[in-house]
Amino acid sequence: MINTRQFVQLLASHRKDEIVVSTMTGDREWIACSPPSPLNFSVIGAMGYACSVGIGLALAQPKRRVIVLDADGSLLMNLGTLVTLAVQSPPNLLHFVLENGLYEIAGRVPVPGCGLVSFTGVARAAGLKEVYEYDDLEVLRGGLPRLLSEAGPFFAVLKVEPTTPLPIQVDKSYRGVDEQARAMEKALGFGIDGL
């Protein structure tokens, strides 16, 4: 099993100018462990949609790697996104799913299908080709450079330990969604022309 914080620290050590879209536990750890960046985007208040946001970003910014830090409970809410990802197939998208079998934020209740569902199996059945599963941080450390540089999309399930219980606190480290959006626009170099 992989320690989530150690994974996040490993990823942060490799990060250059990638966009990182994160949600739930992965988001909390990413915000806590990685340097602040306008290229971070927390999907809060729209559980299940981190991958979908990542797909849109990857299509809009084809020259930039987009990393999604997703969670098992979130992905279960939007499994169809794996089909969309397979069809659109943006080569610059790396989709991590942190699988601990729990809704950590909602009382550490097991997710449906805990122990039964194979997310890598679902991903392959949806048409994704580059599908991986890691339960050892050192093996992931060896594979990470490839995941960050070669043409994907990559889908990687990380079998992670539950994190230490920590109540969510709305503090200065969490920016509002619109504030994040404006910061990312500025970092990517375009104005708010909108849609």
Binding site: V43, V53, L57, L59, A60
Partner: peptide
């Protein structure tokens, strides 16, 4: 871009917008 569920469409539009599209 075809999606499987309508909520995806909202989120993908958000991602496109964030990326300048």
């Amino acid at each position: 871009i075809k999606v499987c569920r309508e909520g995806e469409a909202v989120a993908i539009c958000a991602g496109l917008y964030l990326g300048g599209a």
